[in-house]
């Protein structure tokens, strides 16, 4: 039955979106992280999605998603003049992580919407399949 594949497709998307949500959580948690003794602060991470073609018996395409990789944003971190901070360098500047909290919030909303969409697809497919199982009885 062709509809079984929907759970694989939407399942892969849900898992990819939850990884994205995980990354967003890491980024938001580290939004105020300052640079350690080595001078490098936390770098914002970003997932990249890729289509996975799934095999079906009848040759019809089924396209899932996977996380192809996680990349680090290499832009320089936020620098704040705060000589009183124990992490300040010789010139009195503290280097924070390069996480942009607004970007991350937008990313989070987008990920959660996509997650919800895919869950709804699975629920609809499930209810349709349950009705298909009762075919001919009513």
């Amino acid at each position: 039955m062709s509809m079984f594949k929907i759970f694989d497709i939407s399942g892969s998307a849900v898992s990819a979106q939850s990884q994205r949500l995980n990354i967003v959580a890491s980024n938001l948690a580290n939004v105020d992280t300052v640079a350690g003794p080595d001078g490098s602060a936390y770098k914002a991470r970003q997932v990249s999605f890729q289509t996975v073609m799934m095999n079906t018996q009848d040759g019809m395409p089924a396209a899932g998603v996977k996380v192809a990789g996680v990349s680090e944003d290499q832009s320089p971190g936020r620098r704040v003049h705060d000589p009183a901070n124990p992490s300040a360098d010789a010139t009195g500047y503290v280097t924070y992580s390069n996480v942009n909290a607004v970007d991350e919030m937008v990313n989070m909303i987008s990920a959660s919407r996509s997650y919800q969409n895919n869950i709804e697809v699975m629920n609809t497919a499930k209810s349709l399949m349950m009705k298909t199982l009762q075919m001919g009885q009513g």
């Binding site: 039955m1 994205r20 999605f49 890729q50 019809m60 395409p61 396209a63 697809v121 497919a125």
Partner: peptide, 22 residues
Amino acid sequence: GERQRIIASNIANADTPGYVAR
């Protein structure tokens, strides 16, 4: 059922760069 699967693929790939909707 096939069409449902195709649309599910499209929704799953809503955030994939370069994906072409079918």
